[in-house]
Design a protein around this nucleic acid. Sequence first.
DNA 1: CATATAAATTGAAACGTTTCAAGCGATTTC
DNA 2: GAAATCGCTTGAAACGTTTCAATTTATATG
Lengths: 383, 383
Amino acid sequence: MVNMVLRLIYNGFITKFLRLGSLINTALVFWNFYCIVSIMSVSIRDVALKAGVSLGTVSNAFNRPGALAPATLKKVQKAVAELGFVPNASARTLRAGKTRVLGLVVPDISNPFFTDLSKGVNDAVLAAGYVVILCNTDESSEKEDKYLDVLTSQNVQGILITPARDSYSNLKTITDRGIGLTLVDRIAVGLEACSVGVDDAQGGALALNHLTDLGHRKILLLTGAENIPQVAEREKGIKEAIRKSSASDRPNLQTIRVDAMAAHSAEETLTKYLETNPLDFTGVICGNDLVALGAIRALRAKGIDVPGEVSVIGYDDIDFAQSASVPLTSIAQPKYQLGFAAAQLAIEECENPTKHTHQRIEFQPQLIVRSSTSPVSKKSKGI
Amino acid sequence: MVNMVLRLIYNGFITKFLRLGSLINTALVFWNFYCIVSIMSVSIRDVALKAGVSLGTVSNAFNRPGALAPATLKKVQKAVAELGFVPNASARTLRAGKTRVLGLVVPDISNPFFTDLSKGVNDAVLAAGYVVILCNTDESSEKEDKYLDVLTSQNVQGILITPARDSYSNLKTITDRGIGLTLVDRIAVGLEACSVGVDDAQGGALALNHLTDLGHRKILLLTGAENIPQVAEREKGIKEAIRKSSASDRPNLQTIRVDAMAAHSAEETLTKYLETNPLDFTGVICGNDLVALGAIRALRAKGIDVPGEVSVIGYDDIDFAQSASVPLTSIAQPKYQLGFAAAQLAIEECENPTKHTHQRIEFQPQLIVRSSTSPVSKKSKGI
DNA sequence: CATATAAATTGAAACGTTTCAAGCGATTTC
DNA sequence: GAAATCGCTTGAAACGTTTCAATTTATATG
C-alpha cells in the first residue's frame, strides 16, 4: 500500500486528485491507480525516492557497493527489499552493453554428442552466472544464419558454435560486430576466434587402423557431406593412414554420403545401396554413432551379420553405444569437457575482451573396442 | 566505406573536421572515426539515413510493414540488407516491454524424450520470432530454483517447465511476477497456468495390461521417486488396472525406485537387488526407456534372458528404443508435439496476456510392441 | 582556522527502440 | 474550387538503466 501511494505521488496524480469534482473522474483516477499498481513495475526511481537518495546512488549500490557510505548502502538495500525491486535487464543491457548471455549453436541436439557437450557448456556457464540460449540448426545453413541473427539481436556477448558447413562467411559478421566467437569441434582458420576441438584426423586414423589391424581391406566410409569440416578432417586422417600403409597390402576405400548424420538417413542410404550393389566391403567406418546404428539396422535387414560378415565402427562413443543391438566399437571424444572448455574460453573473452588472446584447445580421441568389429572372417574373405 | 562516412556525418563530426588545424586533432578525429566504425553497431538511425526516411518509418517497416507504401518498404529493406542491420532486442524490450524470450526448464536434457520435446518447442518458438533459453536441472530442485531466478532476471516472457518435483511453491512466484507459465508433461493444479501432457494413468494401464495379456503375474515396477508427478500418475494407472482385473487372477506388483531416471542408475539399482534377492518377477515396467536399457543390462549381466525369462517394457519410445540390444517395447508419447503445443500455448499467452485463458491439452499414449516383451515362458512359470 | 585532499553523492546524458499525435500530399466529394 | 478524407510519413517522447563530470560533504594537513 505504501508503495502504491508513493507511485501516485511520484506520477503527479495527487494534484489531479485534488482538483476532482465528479464521480466519473474519481473512478478514472482509481482506474489509473489500479493500472499503475498492477502493470508498472518497480524501477530504480522508486527505490531512490524511497531511500531518499539519487538514481546514481541506487545504481552504484548494485554495481559498485564499495563506493557507497555503509549507511547509504544499507538504506538503499532496505528500500530494495521492501519494494521487491529487480533490475531491468533490458535497460541495463541497453546502456551497459553487457548481457551475460551466451549463444550455443549446434547442428543436431538429438545427437547425444551435442547433448553432452551442451551439458558441459551449461555447467561452466551457470557457475559464472551466465545463461545460454541453445539453438539447433538441423544442419541447415539457413537456420544457422537465422539463429545468428536472433542471437545478435538478443545482444549475446558470445557465441559458441559448431558450424554446419565449412564456410565461415557468416561468422565474420559476428566477430565484426564485436561478439565473442568460440568454435566448438572446429578449427578457427582465418577467424578471430578461440576454438576447441578433437584431433579428427587422428580419430579417422584410429578407426581405419583398427579395421586394418583386424584384417579388413575393403572398407566403406559412410559419412556426411564433404563440406562438414570434421567429416572432411576425419576423411583426411583415414586417407593419410591408408597412404602410410605398405603399398602391397593397401586397403581399398569407397565413400557413401548420407543426407543427415542421423540413424534413419543412414539406414535409408545404405539400404538403397545394398539393393543395387553386391556386398563389396567387410568394414564400415561411420560418420558418427547414429549413422552406425542406422547402418547396422540396414545390414541386419539384409540378413548380413554384424560383426560376423561386416564390422562397423562408429564415432563419438555416445552413451547408447554400449546398449546398442551390437555394442558399438567407436572413437570416443571428451564431449562434456569439450563443451566445458569452450564455455570457459568464451566467458574469459566476455569478462576480459581487451586483454583476451585467442587460443585453441585440442583433445585427443580414443578407440573404444566393443562387439561391432571383429577380425575379417573366412566367409568374407572372398569379397 | 560509405557506411563509415555516413556515420561521421551523422554524428556531426564533419563540422569538427572542417575546423581542424593541428595534426593532433586530425589524428583524434581518425581515432574517433575508427572507434565509431569498429565498436558502434548499426542502428535504426543508420538505416533511416541510408534509406532517406525517418526513424518511425524504419520501425514500421519491421512492425507493421502493411502501413508503408510498397516503394518505401523496399527502400528500407534494401538499406537493412546492405547495412546488415539487426534490431537491438534490449532497446525493443525496454520500450515495448516484450522480450520475445521463453525459458524451457527440463529435468534431463540427455534424455531423448526432452531433446525431442525441446525440438518441438524450438520450432514453434522460432516460427513466432521468439527464442528459448534452455535450462537443464538434473532433476534437482535447487538447480531448478536457481534457473527460475536466472530466467526471471532475464525478463523472459514465459516459462515452460517440467517441474522436477511435485511441489509447485516456487512456480507461484513466477506467475505472481506476471510471467506466463506453461507446465509440460504435468497438470497445473491450483496454479494459474496452461499445461500440456499425456494421459499418464492410461500409459501405466497400457503397460500393465500388455504384460498381463502376455500372462505375466509377477511384475516389478522399476521407476523414479514417488514425488515425480508423472511417475506417481503412471503408478496410479497401473494400480487402477490391477484393481480392475479379475480378483482370482490378480497380478502381483512390487516397486523398486531408482535415484535418477537414467540407464546407469537403473542398472546399478537392479544389479544390487538381484544380488540379494531371488528372481521373483517375470515382467518389468520401467519408468522410462533409459531405465529399461539399464535394467536389460543388469539382467543380462546376471545371465537372465530378455525377453526369454523376463519381459521388459519401457516408456517414451525414444528413437533409440528400436536399435537397442533388445528392441524395446515401450509406451510412445508424442514428444515433439508436446513441446510444440506447449510453446504455442506459451506464445499465445505472451501475445495476448489479457484475453488469454488457461487451458490443458492432453495427448494419448500408445503401446509400441517390439522384442523386449514376450508371453511368459514355461521356464518362468515357477516364479 | 583555512586550505587541500579525499570520499560520497548527484543528475543529466546517453543507449536504440516503439509509439502516436501531428503533418503533409494526393484524392475524393460536394 | 474549396473542403473533407485518406494514406503515408515524421519526429519527439518515453522505456529503465549506467556512466561520469560536477558538486557537495567529510577528512586530513599545515
